[in-house]
């Protein structure tokens, strides 16, 4: 087997996430030693689980070289519909959970319809659905705050073996998604599609159906993420989830899922989500101005996208056809 010699640059590009992670933890740790305490670490994981769940869903879409900008709105509207139904039919929070996920799946199918059937570029299609979904939600509530029943909040704040429910959910979704991507034919075909859509079509794969399922998966995860996050607060404001698509996409890309498709895993997305949360919490810990924090986050995402771009350029260059063997 011929192993390509790896340059230092490639090594860095492949492990950029971990390098960044180490640097971030070290930096904040030096600034504030209390940051390294188990309590704050546990808090980071809990806070990361919401974005993490959505980022795992986003990974499916990114693997097909697509994008979904509507996750923030899905996080808002799917739990809202679940909440309305729970209220009307007096359903328990667990039922609501399934309703939210199902609504997410339907919204994802709508995105898939725009993209796969009408052939609209994914970012434009999902940019419009971002507004469509949110508009629909605000129409349902007449942009008023929506209060859930008390048992809903109790459900959200419950824990099992001293581990809070959101972390359980995060772990469950992570494992399920991992199994789906690495241990089912569908999952491997997602990777094939992301590597080369043309190739996938030539190999006789049902590309439209694979793509559609990825968008549905993404929205279903976003719905679950929104549902879990709202269950912590017990109420839903009109602006809930606005701008979350950034955090979600950023988490995935930061973790090493490529925007160009076919590269990355759900573990990458999970690590990325924790990294983002670490930065967010670290900025709070070190007392950085509240308004300045998004700027820093923006720069970190920019770096992640930059690394992704360079990595993709290099792999493309490596795959260039040679006509004589390089000895």
């Amino acid at each position: 087997m011929m192993l390509k010699k790896k340059s230092l640059t490639d090594l860095f590009l492949q492990n950029a996430t971990y390098v960044m992670f180490g640097a971030v933890v070290l930096y904040f740790g030096v600034q504030q030693t209390s940051f390294l305490m188990p309590d704050s670490m546990a808090n980071i994981v809990k806070q990361a689980s919401f974005i993490g769940i959505a980022a795992i869903g986003m990974t499916f879409v990114l693997l097909t070289a697509g994008i979904d900008l509507s996750v923030g709105s899905v996080m808002y509207v799917a739990p809202l519909i679940a909440g309305l139904l729970m209220q009307a039919l007096d359903l328990p929070p667990t039922m609501g959970l399934f309703i939210a996920i199902a609504v997410g799946g339907v919204l994802g199918a709508l995105n898939a319809f725009f993209i796969v059937v009408l052939r609209i570029v994914p970012f434009i299609a999902t940019l419009s659905s971002l507004f469509l979904f949110r508009g629909f939600g605000t129409w349902l509530t007449s942009s008023k705050q929506f209060d859930f029943a008390d048992e809903f909040r109790a459900f959200g704040l419950s824990s099992l073996f001293h581990i809070p429910l959101p972390i359980w959910m995060f772990a469950l979704v992570l494992i399920l998604a991992h199994y789906m991507l690495s241990h089912t034919g569908f999952g491997r075909q997602v990777y094939a599609l992301g590597n080369s859509q043309e190739g996938a079509r030539k190999a006789g794969l049902k590309t439209a159906s694979i793509q559609a399922r990825c968008y549905m998966m993404c929205s279903a995860c976003a719905a679950l993420s929104g549902y879990m996050l709202i269950s912590q607060i017990g109420r839903l404001d009109a602006g809930f989830g606005e701008g979350s698509e950034f955090d979600v996409i950023a988490a995935a890309v930061l973790g090493g899922v490529s925007l160009f498709g076919g590269v990355g895993s759900v573990f990458n997305a999970a690590v990325g989500a924790i990294l983002i949360q670490t930065v967010k919490l670290g900025l709070v810990f070190t007392g950085v101005n509240l308004y300045a924090q998004p700027i820093m986050q923006g720069f970190i995402i920019f770096l992640a996208v930059l690394v992704d771009g360079i990595r993709d350029k290099r792999t493309t260059a490596l795959l260039k056809r040679t006509i004589r063997p390089i000895q």
């Binding site: 299609a125 940019l127 419009s128 659905s129 507004f131």
Partner: peptide, 9 residues
């Protein structure tokens, strides 16, 4: 907003 989203589509 919804109409505008639809118009973009």
């Amino acid at each position: 907003d919804m109409v505008k989203g639809g118009v973009i589509l």
